[in-house]
Design a protein around this nucleic acid. Structure first.
Lengths: 175, 175
DNA sequence: GGCACGCCGTAGACACTGTCTACTCTCTCT
DNA sequence: AGAGAGAGTAGACAGTGTCTACGGCGTGCC
């Protein structure tokens, strides 16, 4: 159900699985895009929950928690490919139904907070570093998801890339 | 024409614009996906050409050329949004028609080469660093493209993010 | 108690889409 | 001249998202 391809998301197919007629969803979602946006919103909520669970351990250091966060992000992208792709479909974010774009803000603030505490020198702007780090995670998730990175780098495990990304943005681990 | 949305890419619409009947494209491309793959292939060729032009100046240092490369990548993503999205559509790369995935390999090799020469210490694996850097560029392009990064970081210019990404993966600029 | 009114779902129409197939036209080669 | 291949047309088919008319159903009001 998590990765059945985009044809399983047709309005009529969704209605069919719900056991209702093809016109029924229209009572609740004015358009197909609105329905998909709602589903994507659920995805963002799931991701936030998962990350809060796994990276929420306050006893661990910020650097370790960022590592866990990154792994959670990549895991989510891999294990829920269809959902991940749906969440970042540009036509959904473009129309911005249900404030979908804002949905990722709390998650980002969590990231900024961790980055601010993990940064070695207080000179760098945490929001910018966090933005660059998020972009890096996201890019790895995307490119890895469709095999480009494996093909290009010859690596078959995503861990070294994650490690490299964190070391790059937060400085080497030994300090 | 570069950003008219996905509905302009319907098989029948393409045929209409070409002034032929809806069945004609089928002579050359067995399926809609194959046609889109061919278009995406053109996109990769364009991007490679643009980058070779702009970052191909051998007199400049590798670090500066990487900066130019990054800017080219982000420019391309911004100025050809529809094409950029098409190029990295997972269903195209999945089906891998016309070896679409391999199309980006020369470009990546170019990147690895530059990274290898720009890296401060020879200890790091250039392919991994290049992969992480590519992912970072790609992530910035994506997230920036739909406004999430602007919203999250409060920045309205990509340049600081690009600078941060390069500094992160290649070390600070003053060395 | 009768009844109007929302809410919810159904079913059909409409204009699309991608694919498949039968058909025509035109050019080339023998 | 005639056959065959290549290229394009046009119609059918199942499927899609949206729109509209219609039918139950319960609730509140007089």
């Amino acid at each position: 159900m998590a990765q059945e391809g985009t044809q399983a998301l047709s309005l009529r197919e969704i209605a069919r699985r719900a056991g209702v007629s093809h016109g029924a969803p229209r009572r609740y979602f004015p358009t197909h895009l609105a329905l998909l946006s709602a589903i994507a919103g659920e995805g963002f909520a799931d991701l936030a929950r998962k990350i809060a669970e796994e990276a929420g351990d306050h006893r661990a250091g910020p650097r370790d928690r960022l590592m866990v966060l990154g792994r959670s992000y990549l895991d989510f992208a891999r294990n829920h490919r269809g959902m991940f792709e749906l969440m970042f479909r540009h036509d959904l974010l473009e129309s911005n139904q249900l404030g979908l774009r804002e949905t990722s803000l709390p998650l980002f603030r969590f990231l900024v907070d961790l980055v601010a505490r993990a940064l070695p020198e207080p000179g760098a702007e945490p929001a910018v570093v966090a933005g660059a780090l998020w972009a890096n995670l996201h890019g790895i998730a995307q490119l890895w998801g469709w095999g480009s990175l494996q093909l290009a780098t010859g690596v078959d495990d995503v861990e070294p890339l994650l490690r490299a990304a964190l070391a790059a943005h937060l400085g080497p681990v030994d300090r």
